[in-house]
Amino acid sequence: MAVDILIGLQWGDEGKGKIVDVLAPTYDIVARFQGGPNAGHTLEFGGTKHVLHQIPSGIFHPHIINIIGNGVVLDPIIFKAEMKKLADRNIDASQNLYISKKQLLFCHLISL
């Protein structure tokens, strides 16, 4: 199985989310493997802007498995709000979003 990795080298805001969204339809899996909540991957399609901070950009494609790996710092408040925004737009992220079991056991959390 071939794997492609997209890594940003300029402290974020290079357009990684947009690139992943363009490339995603040709892949089976999109994963975040490190980092924390980002400034926001802004994607626009169908005249609607979508901003993702923690959930992988492949979430808008129902056939793609999206993974949050154990190296990602998870902010439960941002994550919950992001899931709600997706649900409000009739996107059921629970169908194709997975969080690493290691993430659940050894999770780095941001809290108040």
Results as ranks from 00 to 15, higher is better:
F45N: 12
L9Q: 09
M83N: 04
K18T: 13
Y98I: 14
H41F: 02
G71T: 01
D4C: 09
P37Y: 11
S57T: 11
L105R: 14
P56R: 08
L23H: 01
I64V: 11
Y98R: 13
H41A: 15
I7N: 03
F33S: 00
N90G: 11
I99L: 09
G71P: 06
Q10V: 01
F33R: 03
I99D: 08
G12R: 01
S57P: 04
G8A: 04
Q95G: 11
K85A: 08
S57H: 14
Q10I: 03
A24G: 07
L86H: 00
L105Y: 02
Q10P: 05
Q54A: 07
P62T: 13
T42L: 07
N70F: 03
I55F: 07
R32Y: 06
L74T: 10
D21K: 03
P56V: 09
A39N: 06
H53S: 05
D75Y: 00
I91S: 02
P37T: 10
S57I: 00
L112F: 11
Y27H: 11
D28H: 13
P62K: 12
Y27E: 01
G36F: 08
G36Y: 02
D13N: 02
P62N: 02
K80H: 06
I29N: 13
D92W: 01
A39M: 05
I67K: 00
L109A: 13
N38K: 04
Q10F: 05
D21I: 12
S111E: 15
V72C: 07
L97I: 14
F60Q: 03
L112G: 10
V72M: 09
N66A: 12
G8C: 09
S94A: 07
L86K: 02
K84S: 05
K85R: 06
S94Y: 04
K18V: 08
N90L: 07
G12E: 05
A31E: 12
G69L: 07
F106R: 10
V3S: 09
N70W: 03
K101L: 06
T26Y: 15
E14F: 06
L52Y: 00
V22L: 14
L52P: 08
H63E: 15
Q54G: 05
H53A: 12
V72T: 03
G12W: 03
